[in-house]
Amino acid sequence: MAIKSKPRVKVPSEAKAGEIVEIKTLISHEMETGQRKDSTGKTIPRAIINKFTASFNGKTFFEADWFTSVSANPYQAFFYKASESGEFTFTWKDDDGSEQTASAKLTVA
């Protein structure tokens, strides 16, 4: 199950220098655990997003390794300390190697 829909991100567009802002993200994904069996008794193979990365102006500041216990349609919230204007890039990496990204601009006054 590859990533199929556009991720959603909530992040303020402006912040003061030194302000810690909260970032919330959501992506649609089954997060198939590899523990389930289908109706014929065959194990459904694991298919999850296993890594989430957040960077600002190209520099990674937060990473999350997700395992099978993470709920379907993963939600991840975290923080960033604003220092300069620029752009966030968020990356979701699937077990099958595919990636999905989202970005958001932040203006620091």
């Binding site: 990674t60 999350a64 390794d65 997700w66």
Partner: peptide, 17 residues
């Protein structure tokens, strides 16, 4: 889950389901 934080994170806090 495993998180990797940096000083730029500002806060070593995160939420997941």
């Amino acid at each position: 889950v495993t998180y990797k934080f940096t000083p730029q994170s500002g806060k070593a806090a995160a939420s997941v389901r």
